[in-house]
């Protein structure tokens, strides 16, 4: 399965490239666009981006693997990222994570069989004042406790 940007996205990327004196600077945004289009970034997308930006696919892979926030192939529909850094940990992040794990029947970095949920522990989401914070795809869910987790899971299931 090969990857090509839709004409609209390609036009948007071409316009963005012009905003930098060097093409390669558009690498992070280009990967983000690929993610938007395909739901994740795979090798084909990286090769396509490499070709557009005149860099080697190895270079793109090297950059891609440095950053944790791009969705990898095989990620579930809802990527549940539980912040486990100190301010959230002080407010019960471990219990929130464990509740997700128990309710979904998966552990760290695992995906449910139906492909609906992937569970991750992540570092600080900059939402320490409303801990515990969980990012699901683009959205922040704040002030979570182990008690409110089942409700959030139910809402996510309904949102298909």
């Amino acid at each position: 399965m090969s990857f090509t940007f839709t004409p609209e996205r390609r036009a948007k990327l071409d316009a963005l490239i012009l905003r930098y004196p060097k093409k390669q600077a558009a690498l992070l945004p280009a990967l983000r666009m690929a993610e938007e289009q395909a739901g994740c970034v795979d090798f084909d997308a990286m090769e396509h981006v490499a070709e557009i930006l005149d860099v080697s696919p190895a270079k793109v892979l090297g950059v891609f693997t440095f950053y944790t926030h791009y969705r990898r192939p095989g990620t579930g529909k809802h990527l549940v990222q539980v912040c486990a850094t100190l301010p959230c940990a002080l407010r019960g992040a471990e219990a929130v994570f464990d509740k997700f794990a128990a309710e979904l029947g998966i552990g760290q970095d695992e995906t449910t069989k139906d492909g609906m949920f992937t569970l991750k522990k992540v570092e600080c989401l900059a939402s320490c004042g409303s801990a515990v914070c969980v990012q699901v795809n683009d959205d922040y869910h704040e002030n979570l406790t182990a008690e409110t987790v089942p409700d959030l899971i139910r809402k996510l299931k309904e949102s298909r």
Partner: peptide
């Protein structure tokens, strides 16, 4: 221009931010 990062604390260090903005690790 708005430039979105992708999850790396070190990019808040000013020179790390610059290499990231240039399209690198």
């Amino acid at each position: 221009t708005l430039h979105r990062g992708a999850g790396a604390y070190i990019c808040g260090e000013e020179t790390g931010l610059l290499t990231s903005l240039e399209g690198g690790r």
